[in-house]
Design a binder for these strands. Sequence first.
DNA 1: CTGAAAGCGCTAACAC
DNA 2: GTGTTAGCGCTTTCAG
Lengths: 362, 362
Amino acid sequence: MAKAPTVYDVAERAQVSIATVSRVLRTPDAVRELTREKVLDAVRYLGYVPSANARGLAARRTNVIGLFFPGHDDLDYAAAVDARGDGGVPVVVDDDDRASETENLYFDEVLRGAEIEAWRRGFALMVAAGRGASREALINDIAGRVDGLAVLSSTVSDELLAHVARRIPVVVLAGSERDDGFDHVSASNGPGMRTMAGYVLQQHGVRDLVYVAGPGDSPDDAERLEGFRDALRDAGVDEATVPIERGDFTREGGQRIAERLVRGDSRPRAIVCANDQTALGVLDVLEQHGIRVPEDVLVTGFDGITAGRHSRPRLTTVHQPMVELGRAAVHAITARLDDPGLGPQSLTLPVRVVLRDSCPPV
Amino acid sequence: MAKAPTVYDVAERAQVSIATVSRVLRTPDAVRELTREKVLDAVRYLGYVPSANARGLAARRTNVIGLFFPGHDDLDYAAAVDARGDGGVPVVVDDDDRASETENLYFDEVLRGAEIEAWRRGFALMVAAGRGASREALINDIAGRVDGLAVLSSTVSDELLAHVARRIPVVVLAGSERDDGFDHVSASNGPGMRTMAGYVLQQHGVRDLVYVAGPGDSPDDAERLEGFRDALRDAGVDEATVPIERGDFTREGGQRIAERLVRGDSRPRAIVCANDQTALGVLDVLEQHGIRVPEDVLVTGFDGITAGRHSRPRLTTVHQPMVELGRAAVHAITARLDDPGLGPQSLTLPVRVVLRDSCPPV
DNA sequence: CTGAAAGCGCTAACAC
DNA sequence: GTGTTAGCGCTTTCAG
């Protein structure tokens, strides 16, 4: 790792000009075979690796796309990496901490989609999980490194986003399309929930149900609630007769609300939840109290996280195409890069209702 | 997105020199309060975002760390993102494709660990999944963009790695430490398997067992097999009496081998697998054939992927600290960046045997 | 504390 | 085909 060799070093060794070296690397066909060989030999000999910085600076583009989303749970960031295997392997019985595992599946999948699409289009992918205070600095930092940025809805202030958007295309993921001038990519939250709730109302003929919403500040949540209301209307059910509880999209939140519901005197026939985590929490509590699902109560979620396929009973849900969301986000960015003149784009990806045990097919 | 403003624009508007602008951004304390304010105002007004390329070029470091691993299944890379939500939401009954979900958990977790550690240390993280032929170009490309690179074992030829390592620190993930001059971060494969198999042999008193290995080219696999042999020796079991089947670390591979085993006349009492996927495949087949686990046959895996917690029966396994692997890799890189003089480092992270239903505690 | 000026390594006209 | 020559936008001495 002494001093990294540069085009100059390569040029000198190959007895050509630096322009030729550059050509061999970028447009090999524009160079005579023999010359090319000489240059490549020098490259190998010197261990030359082109500096993306210099290239980016000269070419005015980085060929990198950024993906920004909220940080993982702040649990143990400070924990040092100091555990060392000393040969002693502990044997433990199980250790079923259900909480941790379900959390980030959503981002993992979006990330995977973005990753696939980015490289397919010749871009590198830079990921950043913003935490608390550092967020502003972070987003600015990353913005300076990429040609375009995909940001998860509500993780960054519009103001900051606008600042960044002056420089590079920004696409907002999973938020409803507001008239904010950004590109948007999201899933059919409203129609999805409308169909799900409609199934409960129409096919199962339920009239006595409860809706467990998410935190008020989420656009996704708002759309789902709206879809739920539509379903009530479709079924001719008076909204006033249907309680709306406010959860927070977490398993614990679902548990808390379910506790209250279970204690109440009039137990609903169905609990429609705004996301899977919440629904899983509800299932936890119902099971604890010996309430049978789906016999006594129907439960539905939204998202389609993996954990829902393995729950007992398995969770009926509205599945979002998370990988596709990631891909679409990258696609939107590259589209705008290719044609900066484009007006604001909004893509809504289809969802599907997946019937499993917690609200089975009739 | 007109022309992005530069230090010059900011300097002009703030009536200072570009050097001062740079100072305000890098070392704010070295600038008078009043001057700083003027500059910051100009920054906000102009929507200035510093170019990481220019900075990297001038400062000779990118502050980015790269993570490279094998591409995801080549399934549908070509599939275009063209599905659009038209309001019609399909309702489907279940659709339990078990295959797809378990695949990339390992990378997802490593990635998460790397991500956490990178940002904690002030580095951005660039991820790249290399596919087939493009791999060489890719790795070179990414190498030019980062200050250090973590590579998953056996995804890149040693030759290429050596080339890259001349320029930046490279750490190999999850491969055994060979004397190749690279830094290594891995888990206690050998001791882990030795303990796991030892448990089967000693605690359950099994003598009649089969080992299902992975693909021959994986160093992890080799270490695990070695650990298995050690366990046999520990238990005084003649190696010659224990069949070693060769799988390929996939669920299908496990199924294939289990089919053979089930058909054979002498059914083993235990099947020790080199990874979880394989073990899950084995479980699939045993269940199909009505063979009870653990009553008739014990099954163990290795890795600790989430799917193993949800299988029926739940899978006993050796758990690797995947998130920690990612963190440790990044840590190793930053350590070397701080002190380039360091000799080759090798970190082996501890694993633990997790007893679940498929091979329960005695 | 602030400014002037010299690069960092590469690309992209533009000549030859 | 190949070489020359400007920059790209920022950091960093070195003066002042």
